[in-house]
Amino acid sequence: MARVLLNLPRSAAKGAVIEIRTLIMHPMESGFRPGMNGSILPRDIITRFRCSYNGEEVFRAELSPAIAANPFISFTTVATESGTLSFTWEGDNDFRQTETRDIAVT
């Protein structure tokens, strides 16, 4: 499992716009870089990121090799109701990881 850092509030007022900041440990090997023996290292990147709020998708991104190693993605969402946010990263070599965070909305 790759290390993930998620920064978002645990609670928020109903209707507030909250900022979500994500970091995941991943080499994002571009597929354009020569390795030690001179041959190109095969591509190994995260290609998709998704965030759902109580099951409904609120944000999604397609990533390319131009995203830095250990990808950082930050975006916002409206705190609509208490529940669970889920974050999924998918990529080459069947990479797939999901993390969840609960939020209390008052």
Binding site: R3, V4, L5, N7, L23, I24, N70, S74
Partner: peptide
């Protein structure tokens, strides 16, 4: 910024 500094991934580990 602890939420953007990639070194924090290792720190959490």
């Amino acid at each position: 910024d602890d939420s953007a500094n990639p070194g924090m991934l290792w720190m959490q580990e």
